[in-house]
Amino acid sequence: MTNQKESNAIIEIEDLDFYYNQTKALKNVSLDINKNEVFAFIGPSGCGKTTLLRVLNRMNDLIPKTRVVGKVQIEGHDIYDPNVDVVQLRKSVGTVFQKPNPFPISIFDNVAYGPKAHGIKNKKELMEIVEESLRQAALWDEVKDRLNDSATGLSGGQQQRLCIARVMAVKPEIILMDEPTSALDPIATLKVEELINELKQNYTVVIVTHNMEQAARVSDKTALFLNGSIIETNETNQLFTNPKEQETEDYITGKFG
């Protein structure tokens, strides 16, 4: 391996192109994301940020006629190697989706879903995982008395935190978040943002957001996407206060997007 640079990058993307059918959705993307860092992807709709997020745990495999060219390494392993077990990959790279998608089962069963799928049967052990995950997602106090109630009865913000707890229950290394607060009200958004700040102690978080203030509030580093390419990557406060590229400045000052 040609790992010359001594970095603590957990995700290394090199010269990545991505195609839907014949359409090139990502062009020549290269990016390193460090461990325990919150990394934000910003940019206008259709610029490829969600596509790149879905490349990272191969959720795009589910969409027919998509193609990846280039190299994506997570913890030093090429995740598009034919021998890679996609199920294992997704276990260590979890996703929180744009729209909260709790399963229509109980709160407890939602959180226990992943661990059960991975073979944990012991009730006591499951209970411990559920409690720990719900505490980490700052939801425990709100739901501890109604773990057997249906998850669909929770408010939107609670549902999203439940989905975060559900991801944490399988103990991933990396958590991908695809506009996790776009369906939430401002108070619920604030709670999720506070949670993201907590998360980076134990996880690497990659977050796609439309909201530049949100990127500024939660992330350490930010990449700006335009038309499938990364225009600029930098420390978040640098990127917002002292952009190097004209296009970045135009975007963050609201000239387009």
């Binding site: 294992q88 990959l89 997704r90 996703t95 989706f97 709790p102 879903y113 989905c163 399988v170």
Partner: peptide
């Protein structure tokens, strides 16, 4: 059955059959 739920399950590292 909503695709969101299927993706939610698959993204937790479960197999299609599960």
């Amino acid at each position: 059955v909503s695709n969101n739920l299927k993706e939610g399950s698959l993204a937790l590292g479960t197999t299609r059959w599960y």
